[in-house]
Design a protein around this nucleic acid. Structure first.
Lengths: 161, 161
DNA sequence: GAATCAGTGGACAAGATGCCCAGTGCATCC
DNA sequence: GGATGCACTGGGCATCTTGTCCACTGATTC
């Protein structure tokens, strides 16, 4: 699925995203064309979605992060609810889930008081029956995917497929 | 905190991350130096953390995402637990939270069966008392921050700051 | 009025990019 | 064995971009 060179390339780009193809080839000790081809392949296969700017909500004034579990009225379909939720700028992420709740959302707010406003927005969405909120106090492990990338290359020998 | 030009710049880079400074300046209709200065400032202020590659775990074979709520034994400190959790490659994110649980984790796995293995790894961590897992069935709103960026520029007039 | 700051528009050398090519080692396939 | 396909190498080329200067303008602040 991905080999050591790919992993090294991704790790390198993760550490110093501003690096160009040429510089990468120098650091990795391979030809420029190889790096170019690898990158193209990774993007084409969807492994690398892109290189979008990584925005820090806290730096924008949204220092409070919370996870809100929703229960949805069964009739009426989830789609409209999702649409309404997506219209809330503070709504950073929505997942449909198993278990007691129906959806798990990540939201941000400027303050705890502001979080109340955001939650009210959510509760106000037609079809939302109940919400349950937990506030993230700290994020000791911020979102990351590198360990995954670096762990995969267990396939060293003659891999099958 | 951020003005319309910043928002437009970020939006542009989000849509087409491969764009250079020069191309951005053309699209935005401003001088190259301006774009350069804006970008530098955004990065310096921490609003833009970087431009790291966006990896899709699913494309790596990790198609199952789950959220695991942990309860931690009060004695012994969270730090060691966090260290152990961070050592698990499938552990994408860890937050300490309010409410019934102590921590909320996002993990991925190759299959539901594989998820069992990952959860076992978590349960095996010294200090973890109990876990509660919900599986993400779908992610109708994948992680995003753009709406936040585009919503902020409510300050148009002579802002006080 | 003077100073400060953001933006403009232009210039320059240095470097990177996209693209093409011939050659090589290493698989698999006939 | 021999042939094909594939990934990688190393080189060359014109074009574009980058980083970094500069002088000038306009708005804001003191």
């Amino acid at each position: 699925m991905i080999d050591k060179l790919d992993a090294r390339l991704i790790s390198l780009l993760d550490a110093e995203p501003r690096l160009g193809v040429l510089e990468c080839s120098r650091r990795l000790g391979v030809a420029r064309g190889t790096v170019q081809a690898r990158l193209d392949r990774l993007v084409a296969r969807g492994v690398v979605r892109g290189f979008g700017p990584d925005i820090d909500p806290a730096a924008l004034g949204y220092g409070v992060t919370a996870f809100v579990t929703l229960q949805i009225r069964q009739v009426g379909g989830h789609d409209t609810v999702i649409g309404r939720l997506a219209a809330i700028p503070e709504m950073l992420e929505v997942h449909t889930i198993t278990g007691g709740g129906d959806m798990l959302c990540r939201v941000v707010a400027r303050t705890n008081a502001d979080l109340q406003r955001v939650i009210d927005l959510i509760v106000g969405v037609e079809g939302v029956v109940r919400t349950s909120t937990v506030i993230a106090l700290a994020s000791p492990v911020p979102y990351r995917t590198l360990p995954l990338v670096q762990a995969v290359p267990a396939e060293s020998g003659p891999a099958e497929s």
